[in-house]
Nucleic acid binder design. Structure first.
Length: 310
DNA sequence: AAACGGATCAACCGCGAAATT
DNA sequence: CAATTTCGCGGTTGATCCGTT
């Protein structure tokens, strides 16, 4: 036996809303509010609609100050950066864009922005410009709104300096128990190449829930180049081998970030690294084991975006 | 002008979480 | 505390639009 339906589907109207229905719903809510009960609302308002349908119509279309139409470059930047950091948590992303609904942003991402981003990444001229991303995407003036979710709060409370700067996409989870629960999203269907690098934990850990931190940005002291190999590809992923290989490159006290380089038709990843202090435990409930820095690459199309897990 | 196919977006669905009984 | 109800979210659908052949 399945779940009981929220309403009698035979006796409710479905499909697009008429102007009359819109007017009824709007008038009722402006007069009496939702009463904290969407299920009971349609009957009170004289609508032959499911409560869920009323809620959706109000939230996505009728409530005041809804913004429809084209998204600005600044909104694009915010959406991309947040998506890269927290994935498809549309309601949280919407909370950072006044007037935009989660549904709108989701549709916009799926139909336009994702392609726009891919197009950008496919352009070799832009690829060159990515070497100096801040020239292409000047620092944003974005100031995050208050966020209630502790899960994501620490991931992006800092102003995001520029879209597509690799540092913006890097997240790590310092909870070793979650290490096998990688839940990354991939933009392209042609995903072929991944890279995961173990990095040590910072000496200090200020995450409120002990689970999420953002890798700090800093000046890098040394640059190491290498060409992506087949480690960690989508079929037969062997992260352990890959981590071991990269640990061999960098040792235990190296903090790394990634940049891209595109020379002579060979894609390379530049690993920027710096020495940081580390210890086995910092006394804040964070440990240095199983730290991972994660990025992945659509190697064939020279496309990259960050991921997350948790 | 008609047929076709991709793009768009409002709306629906089902699930887990939260609230209520 | 368990059962039930409601909410809120993210994924998906399908009607419509629009450009191309």
């Amino acid at each position: 036996m399945g779940r009981a339906p929220c309403c009698d589907k035979n006796n409710v109207k479905r499909g697009p809303w008429s102007p009359e229905e819109d007017a009824k719903l709007k008038e009722f809510i402006e007069k009496y509010g939702t009463g904290g009960n969407w299920i009971a609302l349609p009957q009170k308002a004289g609508l032959k609609r499911c409560g869920k349908s009323c809620r959706l119509r109000w939230l996505n279309y009728l409530r005041p100050n809804i913004k429809h139409g084209d998204f600005s470059d600044e909104e694009d930047r915010i959406i991309c950066s947040l998506y890269a950091n927290i994935g498809s948590r549309w309601s949280i992303i919407a909370s950072q864009l006044p007037g935009r609904t989660d549904n709108d942003i989701k549709n916009y991402w799926n139909t336009k922005l994702k392609k726009k981003l891919m197009g950008f990444m496919h352009s070799s001229s832009n690829y060159q410009r990515m070497k100096s991303p801040n020239l292409f995407f000047p620092p944003t003036t974005f100031q995050p709104q208050a966020i209630n979710s502790s899960l994501v709060r620490d991931s992006y409370l800092e102003p995001i300096p520029s879209l597509l700067h690799p540092n913006n996409f890097i997240m790590y989870n310092n909870s070793s128990s979650n290490n096998n629960n990688m839940n990354f999203d991939q933009l392209g269907t042609n995903f072929q190449e991944s890279l995961m690098i173990n990095i040590p934990m910072q000496a200090s850990c200020s995450s409120s829930d002990g689970s999420w931190n953002q890798i700090p940005r800093s000046t890098f002291e040394e640059t190491q180049k290498f060409t992506l190999d087949n480690y960690g590809n989508n079929e037969g992923t062997n992260w352990a081998d890959h981590d071991q290989k990269l640990n061999g490159y960098f040792g235990n006290n190296i903090q790394s970030s990634l940049q891209f380089q595109y020379d002579n038709n060979i894609e390379q990843v530049v690993i920027n690294k710096e020495m940081i202090s580390s210890s086995s435990s910092n006394g804040n409930g964070c440990n240095n084991n199983n730290m991972s820095l994660f990025n992945y690459f659509n190697y064939e199309s020279k496309t990259s975006i960050g991921g997350y897990w948790g």
